[in-house]
Design a binder for these strands. Structure first.
Lengths: 142, 142
DNA sequence: CTTGAACCTCCAGTAGCTAGAGGATGTAAG
DNA sequence: CTTACATCCTCTAGCTACTGGAGGTTCAAG
């Protein structure tokens, strides 16, 4: 039987985060000691490791919920899990494309800044006037 | 004199967002009509455009506050603005590197999934067992 | 039995908005 | 001048995914 602290250490999760996962229904309500402290078994350890790993891969909690659900039903076709992963991949690719555009623009701003007074600073000039931009970029809401 | 709605349209910002910027001190408190409605001039329009553009480039509100401050002092050396932009560029590069690792991992997961039952799904297997991973990836907190 | 680390619940805060309730204002048409 | 109605106002709450702290209890070792 594992305490919440041990579980936290084993999975690299904060204690509060585990309680949060319980609160939002990602982790089950575990057994308790007479005094009311949580005690976990290996099932929960595996589940938490799964969640953490999926988080590291950038999956959102909702996607993880779906993945866990699929994982609990071994006989269902795995197309859904595949679809979730593909969706995630698309998101990653989109984010990368956006970041690529931002990177270009930032590099140009910095490169052209000659290092004088702020009045002539290219960084600030570009920000003042969008038409100075060479690329389209839409980071907001990324 | 522009209403908040007009300002919103011209800059592609939601009305609430403009009020939010005022609340957090990015936008000044504008003049008001007798009835209490906000009225803006071109100064505010420029300032909001600057903010929005910086947001599109991924700058955080704190960085934007600094940039606006620098922009208000034309005689200061522009090294600070340059430094902020370089910091932002580094962040973008780091995020891209992380996303690259995630992309690789996701592609591998998807590629190896043969499309049978979820019991044999490679997507779920990888998530279950981190040691299956070829790359290090740390998206959490990105 | 005592000590101290680890546990408990509950509340608040982070970034950057966004949505909605419930009511006031501004403007153009009739 | 009145009426209609789009737009404005403030205020509160919600979103993601946690994180931190206050104030108090429990567990395990010595």
């Amino acid at each position: 039987m594992l305490t919440i602290g041990t579980l936290a250490k084993k999975t690299g999760t904060k204690v509060q985060t585990i309680r949060y996962y319980e609160q939002v229904g990602l982790m089950p309500e575990p057994g308790r000691t007479e005094g009311g402290q949580r005690r976990y078994g290996d099932t929960e350890l595996d589940r938490l490791a799964f969640i953490r790993h999926a988080r590291q891969l950038g999956f959102g909690l909702d996607a993880i919920r779906e993945l866990l659900d699929l994982s609990d039903h071994p006989d269902r076709p795995c197309e859904e899990a595949d679809a979730i992963a593909r969706r995630q991949l698309r998101q990653v690719e989109q984010r990368m494309a956006r970041l690529e555009a931002l990177k270009t623009e930032l590099e140009r701003m910095i490169h052209e800044c000659s290092g004088g007074r702020t009045a002539d600073c290219q960084v600030l000039t570009v920000l003042r006037d969008h038409s100075e931009c060479l690329t389209e970029h839409d980071e907001i809401g990324a």
